Amino acid sequence: MPRDSRSEYEWRMHKVVTHIDDHLERPLDLAELADVAHFSAFHFHRLFAAWAGETLGDYVRRRRLEVAALRLATQPRLSVLEAAVSVGFGSGEAFSRAFRARFGSAPSSWRAAHDWSLLPEANSNPDQIELHGFTKNGPGPRRDPDGAASPEPPMNVELIIRPPVTIAYLRYVGPFGAPVGAFWGEQVAPWITRHRLWSGARYGISHDDPSITPPEQSRYDACVEVPEDFVPDGGFQKTVLPGGRYAALRFHGLPAEINTAWTRLLRDWLPGSGFQFDNRPAFEHYAASYAYDDNTHAFECDICIPIAPL
């Protein structure tokens, strides 16, 4: 069944932004990106700006700097110059100027301030907890009624090899946390029910770090496993979630508690593991067999981060 007009338009634009993220290390010109989208180069710049809310040049520049910042935070042995070259900057000086203009500090100073081994142990504003992705404002260790920190349970992190999986996804753009839960309940779950896909695994993919990307531009994909020949509709797109080596942490708890698990994995386990993030997306994996409590909303999932040797 062919896509409807709106789904076709969305699919072409998603192809463009995926192509941009996959090729940040080299020049990206208007004609090339228009060709990826199968749109006229004469009109593509205006079409992209209307869809993305920013010009093509501004979007590419922002993504180069955000990806470089994420790599500086997650790949401790990557030099500033290597980070610059990996996203298409020809010199360290040009990169440092652009980075300072975007983030307000030099790359090396920014990296030191975003060392995950120094994540805060307490969150002074619980309302700002992000429930998904790479947030660095976790609530820290549990505390006894007298205020003393109580021991956290040991982490059972498993190193696994995941196969690639075909997924249909609907993208949400905006602040993470409670709005993502509403997005699943109001838009994603009814679509999964309508297409009888609850027997497949679900995934939540946070593409951006809320401490790097402005909340109103942060991207999250709500995903469900589908057959390879599945044709999505209703604004859903289809892609392949990459396989490979991941570190997986099983979580069971309330929605407001999953941020603690993300924080502990990044703060306590990753720095001493001998691994670092690679460039595949991290995600939450919800197997069809995993528990969910309708009364308490407690749920079970695997937090999966893609890893490569240091």
Rank of each mutant, 00 (worst) to 15 (best):
R3G: 11
G235R: 11
Y169G: 12
Y169K: 03
Q187N: 13
A112E: 15
P107H: 05
V165I: 15
V188G: 02
L70V: 00
V188I: 12
Y172V: 02
G234V: 00
Q276Y: 00
V60S: 07
G272H: 14
R202F: 01
S108R: 13
W198N: 10
G274C: 09
V67A: 06
H45T: 14
V87D: 06
T74G: 11
S218H: 02
V87I: 04
I160L: 12
R26A: 14
P306W: 12
T263R: 01
G177I: 02
Y169N: 11
G57V: 14
D115V: 08
R100L: 15
L118N: 07
V80W: 00
G57K: 14
R77V: 01
D221F: 02
P163H: 12
A287T: 09
R245A: 15
I205G: 07
P214R: 06
P27H: 12
G272T: 04
R26M: 05
A256R: 15
D293Y: 06
V60Q: 12
H195V: 01
L72T: 09
P139G: 05
H114V: 11
Y290S: 13
H132C: 02
G57H: 14
A261Q: 08
S91N: 04
R194Q: 15
H43Y: 08
V224P: 05
D229C: 00
H43L: 11
A247Y: 08
W191H: 13
T55N: 02
A84S: 10
L265V: 07
E186D: 15
A256T: 14
Q128N: 07
D127E: 14
L270N: 05
P27C: 11
D229W: 00
P153G: 13
W11P: 00
K15Y: 01
W262R: 11
D21G: 07
R162D: 09
L265D: 10
F283R: 03
Y286D: 03
M1S: 14
E32A: 13
